[in-house]
């Protein structure tokens, strides 16, 4: 699955996107965030306030309990500040 990062989350992770192989047992957005946090300290710190992180599967905004299903792209980002 492709993961996109935006704004300060992108800066803190020092990457705009990556491809990952979903490990067994990871079926929701929240579980994937928890999995990413186990990788290294930088990633863990970037997600230290997971409730702030918003998610979109393909082009739909979703909550953390949303199943990843067959989506091709997950985007993770801070609260939006447009307009």
């Amino acid at each position: 699955m492709k993961i996109l990062y935006f704004a300060w989350l992108r800066e803190r992770l020092d990457r705009a996107e990556e491809e990952i192989e979903l490990p067994p047992g990871v079926t929701t957005v929240g579980e994937l965030i928890a999995h990413l946090r186990t990788r290294d300290e930088v990633t863990d710190a970037a997600f230290e306030r997971p409730h702030l992180i918003r998610a979109a599967l393909d082009t739909e905004l979703v909550e953390h309990d949303a199943p990843l299903g067959s989506a091709r792209t997950l985007a993770l980002f801070p609260p939006m500040t447009g307009g």
Binding site: F6, A7, W8, A56, L61, A75, F77, P78, P79, M80, T81, G82, G83
Partner: peptide, 14 residues
Amino acid sequence: IMDTLKTDAPFWKK
């Protein structure tokens, strides 16, 4: 539209 766009459209200001 403006009130909803502020929180629900993916833009981030720096």
